[in-house]
Design a protein around this nucleic acid. Sequence first.
RNA 1: GCCGGAGUGGCGGAAUGGCAGACGCAUCCGACUUAAAAUCGGCCGGUCGCAAGGCCGUGUGGGUUCGAGUCCCACCUUCGGCACCA
Length: 852
Amino acid sequence: MPEQDERLERYDPTAFEPRWQARWEELGLHRTDLRDRSKPPYYLLTMWPYPSGDLHIGHWYVKTPTDAIARYKRAKGFNVFYPVGFDAFGLPAENAAIKRKIHPREWTVANMENMRRQLRSMGASFDWSSEVVTCDPAYFRWNQWIFLKFYERGVAYRKQAPVDWCPSCQVTLAREQVEGVDRICWRCSTPVTKRDLTQWFFKITDYAEELLSFDGLNWPEPVRTMQANWIGRSEGAEVDFAVAPAAHHPGGEALRVFTTRPDTLYGATFMVLAPEHPLVATITAPERRAAVDAYVEATKRKSEIDRLSATREKSGVDTGAFAVNPVNGERIPVWIADYVLAGYGTGAIMAVPAHDERDHAFAVRFGLPIRTVMAPAALTATPDAVPLPYDEKGDGAAIAVNSAAWEGAAWPASFEQAVAHLERTGAGARSITYRLRDWLISRQRYWGTPIPIIHCPACGPVGVPAEQLPVTLPDDVDFQPTGESPLKTATAWLNVPCPKCGGPGQRETDTMDTFVDSSWYWYRYLSPGNEHGPIDRDLVDAWCPVDQYTGGAEHAVMHLLYSRFFTKALRDLGLVGESEPFTRLFNQGQILGADGERMSKSRGNVQDPDELVGRHGADAVRLFLMFMGPWDQGGPWSSSGISGMVRFLGRVWTLALDPLGREPGDPRAGRLPEGQDAAAAEASIRRAAHRAISGVGADIEAFRFNTAVAKLMELANALFPYRGSPVAGGGAWNEAIAMLLSGLAPMAPHIAEEIHARLQAAAGIAGDDPRWRSIHARPWPAVDESLLAESTREIPVQVNGKLRDRLQVPAAATEPEIEALALALPKVLAALEGRAPKKVIHAGGRLINIVG
RNA sequence: GCCGGAGUGGCGGAAUGGCAGACGCAUCCGACUUAAAAUCGGCCGGUCGCAAGGCCGUGUGGGUUCGAGUCCCACCUUCGGCACCA
């Protein structure tokens, strides 16, 4: 057969995907001119990867749609900045070093190399010229610089405190890095313990109130809620009780408590201090000393898990001391118990057992008195055995009872009156408390940014002078974990003169939490080589805040909270102008293993993208990931279905490059559909194309990639019947093919470019022709709105809300016309069973419902 | 316990309060082929019926509405987050 030779070769992505990747880079297609002000800027950021060695399919799941956004926005006329880099410090590199005896740097560099190759194989349109790598001294010197600025302003400070410690990683953790009620390490899931250490902190609590505001931000509700809960704002009052004089103790000290319910002050029948409370040592009565000391000791030894154990059986001991309630002068006993936390509020509470479940349990256990101070408005007293819940609204609304100064007041007036009373008498004041703790950033590890401090016996901790930065990492260290930083073993590096007095000093040996590295990296992308400062303010003003950020919700109260804090702190240093880093955030879902579990090497359920790309091509994998379902949903991995993407791309290939071909097995091949002439066929083609491209644009804007792909499939399906027909290859056809390719280009960039290049070549424009242009440098097609409407409409006809028939009417048909036609339909008459219609509802010309 | 998300065919999923199941996978049927694969065309929620067509159907039970997968109330299941925070 002679046609055999002319037959189009099959779609084979491996033949051209790498070629286009190389060509795009050669053309500098994705390099952004940051000074170009001719187009509106669009800063698109995706969470940078940790160089663990291999990209898995989860990385692709985040980055593929993000890349489609980048490409789409370029086509829409934006100057898109889409950078990438590596979060290259961290424990896995150090663990690899311990296990395999290679330097963490070597391991990291090799992994980054592999991951760069993998990212390129996706066809991702990153601007590699702005790459940032955190383990590069050119980056981390600015961590140190910022740290010193924070230190100068008191944002960074050092204190001794009980801190969270992972016994497996042998490292301290920030509170945010301890997960769940089991209190496990975020990295290795080992239960965390407590250690009393002197460590560096960042004063994120100074920004607690500001961090609660998400004004002007388009962030997912769950993340905002999680951050708000994490910050945990409580409105209440601080109240000073006075320690009562006793034989062993003169008394008089203020015993300050925080309460959200000052209106229940008359119901305070005892007080409870955290065992760590400083007053415990002085106020304890001699005869109680032994029991109190034993309890304090036992608490210290108890792990956090035991202390918060599931049984929640209340424990505690009486100190023998008394305190005086400022509102009624009553003497009440002071106890200590571990259910009161030292780190929250003032570390002391007034117990109101009648109205608080925990206090109630404690009172019952130890036989302490219970006094009701709230009662339903209708009653004057309730049984003392049951705590009355704080029911502030509705039928159970309670009023204050046994509460002289605000007797009879209902919430929230009772609160206001109580606070006013306290402020008038000087016994207390309105107060707000947050659950947020300061960010512990010291890590007893090697592979991180050295904290630029020199400890001097005479001057204390002294910042390394800015001109001596960066403090780099010495290579002659012992990585074996000892619970202390490996940097302690680098004696030559360790001992340096004090910058202040010149006396013998020692470097700080802890390194910074790697979350510090990722708390400002998007600013550095704008000027990665800048040697004059961490941030180029002009570029930041032009490009920031980031327009769109994409990444996982697992960072809700870690990276995403730290980054907001950093932005505000950098703003207060005058380094940036804005208060928020990311205007719009999207959290994609998580791809699980085929077994529905989190992907991990130990489970053996990790999907390797290289293998998929080798078999199906990058475009098919990209499309498949976008087509799986809504992007924020994720789900278990299954590769069944990927063949459908290959099939679809094959159809696009055939449609575009062999429009006149016919399939031997197709019964209708070459003919126009029944009842259509060429003009009708072309109109139908144009309508399908314009509708598709209009829908695809709207879907990408709304991050509905699955339906965007479906619309392109619909267009291909609509065109296929015309292949080989008289209209194939005509004007309408070619316009439709161009739209199909443009719509596909953001999501499947290689095949779109390959077909586009072949079509240009067929038109006499080869790749070296100055007229040649990449499809990715072309504008998004303009949609002719007039083509979106059909010339005739199909109106569903319902009787009593049930579908009975459908009606074909001209697009311009009026409601009375439609109604007349509908009422004449035999099926409608049958459904009405002879009754006259009571009412007819026209749903905006889209549907008619006859009520009879 | 508290806060947030999700429950739709065999499967992934679609649907501004208006035709439930778009698009795809799998299965099945047909065409092309000596044959298979690939490709092309088609069936594809359940049920009754020869058919035309009817009835049922979006986790459960109520409600609002001419009309509910969609809104409201209660509940069940499931996935995340938080959890003695005074």
